[in-house]
């Protein structure tokens, strides 16, 4: 149905009533705009971004724990699960599989989550202080399902990876990766719905709870 394509574009061109001679120039202008993205007006938090990230995360109904290093993660996870009477079995991204889960009494498999897994532990590409948001990139080692299917999502967030806003996160993505992965998922707190009588309920189709472990020394 490329007939539809041509007709729609012709209709659009007709209605815009632009001089056909300007088409090349307009194409160049568009290419230029894409090549030089401009950040818009925004608050731009500075200073202690980890504190700001923690505070905004709480307002999005996440919970937060601050640790020193990666090695502290298993014990912190065990503490959190015990405090909330949650089972100590689940899945994690492979990059976290080497942690000493066993000593903390936990059983974590370094594989993508399935429909029955109750706990998913991920890292993050970076995190955003403005809104208390994780930026997760899909990839062979970073399954998107791990932060989605389980009832509990725990994310490990090195403080050095907390940036001020989404624009800064995009800049980081462009410089470190060049192009976008299949899925960039910005996650801000547990899933929720307000569809029944505008009453907010946490835990719609995704996790009921999101717990963030900020690593202050990493």
């Amino acid at each position: 149905m490329s007939e539809a394509r041509d007709e729609i574009l012709a209709r659009v061109r007709g209605a815009l009533a632009r001089d056909p001679a300007t088409l090349t120039a307009r194409r160049q202008a568009v290419a230029q705009m894409i090549a030089t993205p401009q950040a818009g007006p925004r608050p731009q938090p500075r200073g202690d971004l980890a504190a700001r990230f923690a505070e905004r995360s709480l307002s999005m109904s996440s919970t937060v724990d601050r640790l020193a290093t990666r090695a502290d993660v298993p014990a912190a996870v065990a503490r959190y699960l015990a405090a909330n009477s949650l089972p100590g079995t689940g899945v994690c991204w492979p990059e976290l599989a080497d942690l000493d889960w066993q000593s903390a009494g936990l059983v974590l498999a370094g594989r993508p989550a399935g429909g029955d897994d109750l706990l998913g532990i991920t890292g993050t590409f970076c995190a955003i202080a403005e809104t208390g948001t994780l930026m997760l990139l899909s990839g062979p080692q970073t399954a998107a399902t791990t932060s989605l299917l389980p009832e509990t999502h725990i994310a490990v967030v090195p403080a050095s990876r907390i940036v001020s806003d989404m624009e800064a996160a995009f800049a980081l993505l462009r410089s470190e990766r060049g192009s976008l992965p299949r899925a960039v998922n910005f996650v801000s707190g547990p899933s929720r719905t307000g569809d029944i009588e505008q009453t907010i309920v946490l835990g719609a189709h995704g996790p009921y709870r999101v717990h963030l472990l900020i690593l202050d020394n990493e």
Binding site: R56, S59, M60, T131, T133, S179, L180, P181, R182, A183, V184, N185, F186, V187, S188, G189, P190, S191, R192, G206
Partner: peptide, 11 residues
């Protein structure tokens, strides 16, 4: 201030 999920899906 932001919705819980914003997904950018490419390819």
């Amino acid at each position: 201030s932001i919705s819980n999920y914003v997904s950018l899906l490419t390819g």
